[in-house]
Design a protein around this nucleic acid. Structure first.
Length: 234
DNA sequence: TTCCAGGCAATAC
DNA sequence: GTATTGCATGGA
């Protein structure tokens, strides 16, 4: 696939527009940047040495599952419930009955399914540590393309691009992709068009989410003047 | 009350 | 391979 220079141009524009995002949000980083859309706390702009502990790495992994088709504030509630119960850790999570776990993560929705997914993922990580491939991660029931890439990029700092519903929405609107593009193709478009840089991949995905929440939300009227039109050059 | 949100797996063609 | 469906809460 050929690089598309528009991908880089839009990255620069988003960065200028919104500034560094400091993903992935973490409970232990509460208060770092209290003004972000969709969540009160947990972001760490300008700091790229997160996660700093195994516990935080595990929290990110859990969060990627909990946020599947779910608004982030609901995920935060579930994470706090887990934290209060000391369940953000492989051992404690694995030794907790699935039904108890489901009750803790109820605010995140699909809690019965996700309780099983979390167990599967925890067992996988407990066994593999950090020595696993994307394909192995995808073989875990409950881990699809986006969740796998989020875990790899944000929890383990591997240079793999995350594609989500917002990415498809924005870049379809810009005419750079269309509905026929599959996950792998969109992912490849970004990866061949950008430097292979974990920080760039992390920030770009986060910026896409931030921008989409502001201007491409289905339930919010879009700015008719659209002063933040990404298709405008510069 | 209805619609939406940082998907995924199972099933049906 | 592509399309459809179930899974579920909390906020707008």
């Amino acid at each position: 696939m050929k690089p598309n220079p528009e991908i880089r141009r839009i990255y620069k524009k988003l960065l200028k527009l919104h500034g560094p995002q400091g993903w992935w949000p973490l409970l232990s980083c509460a208060g770092c940047n209290p003004t972000k859309t969709g969540s009160m706390t947990g972001y760490h702009p300008h700091e790229y040495d997160w996660p700093k502990t195994e516990r935080d790495r595990f929290e990110i992994c859990i969060g990627t599952v909990l946020t599947q088709n779910t608004a982030w504030p609901n995920v935060e509630k579930a994470l706090r419930n887990l934290d209060d119960a000391g369940l953000i850790g492989c051992d404690s999570l694995l030794s907790t009955p699935e039904q108890k776990l489901a009750e803790r993560i109820r605010p995140a929705g699909y809690f019965n399914q996700k309780a099983g997914y979390l167990k599967n993922l925890a067992a996988f990580l407990d066994k593999k540590g950090s020595g696993f491939s994307r394909a192995e991660l995808l073989a875990v029931k409950g881990i699809g393309d986006e969740t796998a890439d989020s875990i790899l990029l944000y929890a383990f700092g591997r240079p793999t691009f995350v594609v989500d519903a917002y990415t498809k929405r924005i870049f379809s609107a810009l005419g750079l992709i269309d509905g026929s593009w599959k996950y792998r193709e969109i992912k490849e478009l970004f990866e061949v068009s950008l430097p292979e840089d974990v920080v760039v991949f992390q920030e770009y995905h986060a910026l896409i989410v931030e921008h989409a929440k502001m201007f491409y939300s289905k339930k919010r009227s879009r700015d008719p003047a659209n002063t933040h039109d990404l298709s405008t050059e510069k």
